[in-house]
Design a protein around this nucleic acid. Structure first.
Lengths: 121, 121
DNA sequence: TGAATATATGAATATTTGTTCATATATATT
DNA sequence: AATATATATGAACAAATATTCATATATTCA
């Protein structure tokens, strides 16, 4: 059933199909890229940030309006906006004391759409 | 600069543009849907799970082969596979003692592609 | 210049979550 | 039936992270 070279031990891990392991290892994207990808999705993995992004789909908004829309305090929203800004998912412009946030590009919308189509099955 | 009805207080939150807040509140998807979406993206927000999914892009694999490919122990991989299974991102078939995992559908690939195209800018 | 206000941010706290370890379950083999 | 092995899983621990509170910064207006 198992061919000769398929039962090895690598760092105490049993390997059943060495050929598959070798092939997949070669084909996998580099570590750093996968890390960055996980970091990006982590941003979307929080209800508050999802809500902020959804709100910005509809309209450019200032911080206190976002807070009012979500029923959260200004500080919490501001902290999350900083994270969204760092990931280049939102951009902002300042008009006097008021800072207006909007979506940086339409990647966000595309990613959301794919997400929605998965959960709606 | 500010029109009359635009300076209210709702639950101690200052609102500058009541019209925008009202409009966006109406257009936002329902709470539960946004929660589910965040839950889905949370799954992708972990390097181990990203790696598992990437590995499964290339080939159906059993648990110990995945563990060997990622250089992780069997238990950690198994825990993560359970999460991926629960979210219907992977499916599995059993062949004797060995359980083979593969991608459930191609939503994952599409979501990944969008993610990659965002970080590669 | 001084008061008011919109936003940002550091620190503390509470919660969530990933990994490890030990062990249970299920299947195959002798 | 007993043993070996592939996988699953509960509990404990450690690390990451979201929110709150207090306060700082920046801008406007009087």
């Amino acid at each position: 059933m198992k061919d000769d070279k398929s039962n090895n031990d690598v760092c105490e891990i049993t390997v059943i199909h060495q050929d598959v392991v070798d092939k997949v290892k070669k084909l996998m994207p580099e570590e750093e890229k996968l890390y960055d990808l996980a970091e990006l999705f982590k941003i979307f993995g929080d209800t508050t940030r999802i809500k902020i992004l959804c709100a910005l789909f509809e309209s450019e908004m200032c911080v206190c309006d976002i807070a009012a829309t979500l029923g959260m305090n200004q500080s919490a929203v501001s902290h999350q906006l900083r994270i969204l800004k760092q990931s280049k998912l939102v951009k902002h412009r300042k008009e006097g004391k008021v800072v207006y946030y909007s979506l940086a590009d339409d990647h966000v919308i595309k990613i959301f759409d794919q997400g929605f189509s998965h959960i709606e099955e």
